[in-house]
């Protein structure tokens, strides 16, 4: 049985947080969607709060202190990423952005990503489209067409009787699972397979 590694990154700050709640449901649904495809899911959840100081250290000095190196390695090695943030000031949280700012640029190239966000009201649901999706397009990730936004009311009856959130989670998870299973092999590793000097010099004066 083949395995796909899914890393869930959650930027909620309170414990327990609704962001974590959404992250867990997306992770579980992705696991189920993978097993429906005959693929075993290996899931890891990263609470950014636990590496928050290390993220700042990496931003200020480039040195990933504490557990951050291990977390970055997990993201590097993932077949899919679930990225979930609370909405702060009409966008992703600063910690969420800072974390993805210290992930090595090449790590997310071609990476299947499922975006999720939580907020107090449904009015910020487009944060998925105006903040998260463009950021992951910039990192050249493959963002699943369905993003999942959960407002407080979605945890109760919601507009569609609460079932709507569950349905969105299921749909998004299936899309991520499909992308993770079909994930194209990663591009060349510049350290293992360097561009030769002659190719580097092409078009330059010699």
């Amino acid at each position: 049985m083949t395995t796909r590694s899914i890393v869930t990154v959650t930027a909620g700050l309170s414990t327990p947080s609704s962001t974590r709640l959404l992250a867990d449901r997306l992770t579980a649904a992705t696991g189920e969607a993978l097993s429906e495809r005959g693929v075993r899911a290996q899931t890891t959840t990263v609470e950014l709060r636990e590496v928050a100081h290390d993220v700042v250290n990496a931003m200020t000095t480039r040195v990933p202190t504490g557990q951050l190196r291990e977390v970055l390695d997990r993201v590097n090695d993932a077949d899919g990423v679930i990225a979930v943030t609370p909405v702060f000031n009409a966008s992703y949280s600063g910690l969420f952005k800072s974390f993805f700012d210290v992930v090595e640029p090449e790590a997310l190239d071609g990476m299947p990503v499922l975006v999720g966000a939580t907020g107090g009201s449904p009015r910020h649901s487009l944060v998925l489209e105006h903040a998260l999706r463009p950021m992951f397009v910039h990192t050249r990730s493959v963002v699943a067409p369905t993003g999942v936004y959960a407002a407080s009311e979605d945890w109760g009856s919601g507009e569609g009787g609460g079932r709507e959130l569950t349905e969105r989670i299921r749909r998004a998870a299936h899309q991520l699972a499909g992308l993770a299973v079909d994930r194209a092999p990663v591009g060349r590793d510049g350290f293992e397979d360097p561009v030769s000097f002659d190719d580097l010099m092409s078009g330059l004066g010699r």
Binding site: V56, N57, T60, T61, V63, T65, G66
Partner: peptide
């Protein structure tokens, strides 16, 4: 200028 506000001396 290059370390201030970042990691502790021990972490670094």
């Amino acid at each position: 200028p290059v370390y201030g506000g970042g990691p502790s001396l021990e972490e670094f």
